[in-house]
Design a protein around this nucleic acid. Structure first.
Lengths: 199, 199
DNA sequence: CAGAAGAGCTACGATACCGTAGCGTAGTGG
DNA sequence: CCACTACGCTACGGTATCGTAGCTCTTCTG
């Protein structure tokens, strides 16, 4: 059942059938999430889509919400490695540009609104989303803090507000106004931010 | 059935029973939307909640999505009247402050994520949300344009990006980071924007 | 290669909704 | 006061999904 503690310690010992099933189930769930949102995910739909029997799904997950959670996680997990080099402007533009691509053309981009909506109701999912974003934002926050220390930015800037000013417009365009989201918009956002925030 | 063209012209002629039923249905639908999101709305749920028979609901709306649409609309419709006076800073702070209250403590605040998620899938709803927001943003846009003409802001500002920079952080905090959203944050956002954007 | 364990398959009973029909009741407006 | 109309109620047949049970078949593992 599920995964024994011993198996967690020695991963090589996991029955490959389990690995296959879990992977197929998660993949199918993620695809359904992307296509139909959180509400469109049904166990029977996953079974059909994945080719895995419904009973097998229940063998591995005891609740639908746990499965949805894990599927979200599998969708989000691959964290891109940032290389933090260049000027502050370059770093910010790189982060924001990557973010805009993430929310528009990435594999999980279609699931963003479902993710946010689900997070609004499910505290567990909320935490997941929060952690996911927090990790990514941390790079940007670091860059800002370093810039403040280095005198590139005014010292009285609230880093959290600054992050909001930088990434907020990205999410706003993706979720609310649905205006195009390209590198020139990103440049304008960074521009506006930097012009202001010098000491 | 529904509402005859004649009745639209002479509103006094509408059978009060119809008015009552429609109001009760819309109210119940809106409440369900707020509580359970778009997917949580079922005809039978509405019937139970409103005290209106299921058959009556079908008499007035031919599809569930139309009803959801109308319910959203009824929820959003009351447009607050802005009084555009004071300095640019005061106007911006007033608009953003009202927006932050709108997305956090208003009656429809709990439905925002559902609204956005539904809009991601249903083009009709997308248009509704877009129009709704566009109308409200128009005040802010006007204020910005006037300020540019009046020389209070740099002339090379992209008004749409500027709107994003101003309201983006609000939505970001509400939907993504879930950080607190109060007037001091609003002030900081406006501050940052204005300090930069002077000619 | 033999025992163990995972997976597939079918078939359930149980819910929850759907959308419609038929019929009696009650509120409305001339 | 009477004809009209909206409404409520009950009862459907139909679909989708749930979560479980029992059994067989396949695939690992040692």
């Amino acid at each position: 059942m599920v995964v024994s503690p011993a198996a967690l310690v020695d991963a090589a010992v996991i029955d490959p059938r389990i690995v296959r099933s879990r992977a197929a189930i998660l993949r199918a769930t993620a695809n359904l999430l992307i296509e139909s949102g959180s509400a469109g995910v049904t166990i029977e739909g996953i079974a059909e889509r994945s080719g895995v029997a419904k009973t097998t799904i229940y063998r591995h997950w005891k609740s639908r919400s746990q499965l949805v959670f894990d599927a979200f996680e599998s969708l989000l997990h691959p964290v891109a490695a940032y290389t933090q080099t260049g000027t502050l402007r370059q770093q910010l533009e790189a982060v924001l540009s990557q973010l805009s691509r993430g929310v528009t053309v990435s594999e999980w981009a279609p699931a963003i609104s479902a993710l946010i909506e689900a997070g609004d109701r499910d505290p567990e999912l909320r935490q997941l989303v929060h952690d996911f974003l927090f990790v990514r934002m941390e790079h940007g926050r670091d860059a800002l803090r370093a810039a403040i220390r280095g005198g590139e930015l005014r010292a009285d800037i609230d880093v959290d507000v600054a992050v909001g000013v930088l990434v907020g417009p990205i999410f706003y365009r993706r979720l609310v106004s649905r205006e195009p989201l390209n590198d020139s918009v990103v440049a304008e956002i960074v521009d506006q931010f930097l012009r202001d925030s010098k000491p």
